[in-house]
Amino acid sequence: MDVTGRESAAAGEGERRLPPNLQASVDRHSRHLAELAANLRAAGIGEDVIDASVRDLVGSYQAELTAAMRVVVQGQDHV
């Protein structure tokens, strides 16, 4: 298998591991962050403030997502 093939196989594996409802949550959150950045920019907020704000929000969501994935995986193991 070439590198590309391995990578896409790994990516496919990753996608299979993320339950659809968590994937939908990630997609929704990404969309909301992108809209927020656009609206902050439109309101004349500086790029460094926008970057810091979005980074901050991504960080806390990521921590919650990791915790949620842990619980979901434990739940699947149990069922």
Partner: peptide, 18 residues
């Protein structure tokens, strides 16, 4: 507000069988 809802919803997902 949507991001607040995302956070609340994420906690709910963690409690739900997918």
């Amino acid at each position: 507000a949507s991001i607040v809802c995302d956070e609340l919803q994420l906690r709910l997902i963690a409690q739900r069988d997918h």
